[in-house]
């Protein structure tokens, strides 16, 4: 048993990393290589894949431009509306809420996020469907209002589904806020509004950036909300992908769309991280 300590150490490391490395290679790296290969292939006459090396699939991307535009517009707009509701909520939770109830109120925000998005989304079908709100609106003299299967319904579903995810990072950044900074600002004669815009808001921007980036990235691959609340009229890239893989079985074209989607996600993450670095560089405030 002549085994040096270094060899032994390396062996243990390999054994520890091995299973997860195998999992990552087999179910992340290999699948990604597969769609890269498929995306430069051709569709076989009977559906499926035929080996080739062509960029025809990528050239054909404009054929699904509607899905792209819907996603690229509704994802950031949805994240923005989410932010509009989330910021005051997070502000209340971190600064205004009575300390006794704070943890309870925060938990109540988090709970919906851990319950099935599918169930929470289909509940809106009842509310927005013909027997729900439009029915009530008809009673007050607004007949024939259609809510379900509109971009508005999808936006509402997005705000509803992702609100907890937007509130949490903003809450965390506001909670860390040093109250002495606000007192100092007031002592120096700033009005509460001015203190908010010059002190609170800038210091919470990292949380805002995290929330917006997180929600936007997740929304880019969203499928359920547009499927259930957009009723096939408002569709995202995710819906196009399901159609291409499970219905029309155009795998090479679907792969090209998937590769493009991942590239966009990577691009946005890179930009968001650059921004975060810049914030971190200029906004360092340490009191202690």
């Amino acid at each position: 048993m002549a085994m040096t300590i270094a060899t032994r150490k390396r062996l243990v490391t390999a054994l520890l990393i091995g299973p997860s490395a195998a999992w990552l290679s087999l179910f992340l790296v290999l699948p990604f290589i597969a769609i890269l290969v498929f995306s430069v292939g051709e569709r076989a006459p009977e559906g499926g894949y035929q080996a080739a090396f062509t960029f025809a699939q990528f050239m054909n991307l404009p054929a699904r431009a509607t899905a792209f535009w819907n996603t690229m517009i509704l994802a950031p707009v949805g994240a923005f509306f989410c932010l509009l509701v989330a910021y005051p909520t997070a502000y209340y939770l971190a600064i205004k809420a009575p300390a006794r109830y704070r943890m309870l109120l925060v938990s109540l925000v988090v709970v919906p996020f851990w319950t099935s998005l599918l169930v929470r989304t289909y509940a809106w079908i009842f509310i927005l469907g013909a027997r729900g709100l439009p029915n009530l609106l008809a009673l007050i003299g607004l007949p024939d209002v259609r809510l379900l299967n509109t971009p508005g319904a999808v936006l509402l579903g997005i705000v509803y589904g992702y609100l907890p995810l937007m509130i949490m990072p903003i809450y965390v950044s506001l909670e860390k806020l040093d109250c002495r900074l606000l007192e100092a600002s007031a002592d120096l004669g700033a009005s509460p509004v001015r203190s908010f815009f010059n002190v609170t808001l800038p210091l919470s921007l990292p949380g805002v950036a995290t929330g917006v980036a997180l929600v936007t990235i997740l929304l880019l691959g969203e499928y359920l909300i547009p499927q259930l609340l957009g009723g096939g009229k408002v569709f995202f890239i995710g819906n196009a992908l399901v159609d291409l893989f499970l219905q029309s079985r155009n795998w090479p074209y679907g792969s090209a769309i998937a590769v493009t989607l991942v590239s966009v996600v990577v691009l946005i993450i890179t930009l968001a991280m650059r921004l975060a670095w810049r914030f971190a560089g200029t906004r360092q405030v340490d009191l202690v």
């Binding site: 290589i33 597969a34 992908l241 795998w251 998937a258 996600v265």
Partner: peptide, 24 residues
């Protein structure tokens, strides 16, 4: 390894689904 772990979380589920389907 960190990069791969991050990818496993941020790559949209719909892409993970189709990529796994195609590969398998």
């Amino acid at each position: 390894f960190d990069g791969l772990l991050a990818a496993a979380i941020v790559v949209p589920g719909v892409v993970i689904g189709i990529a796994t389907l195609v590969a398998l």
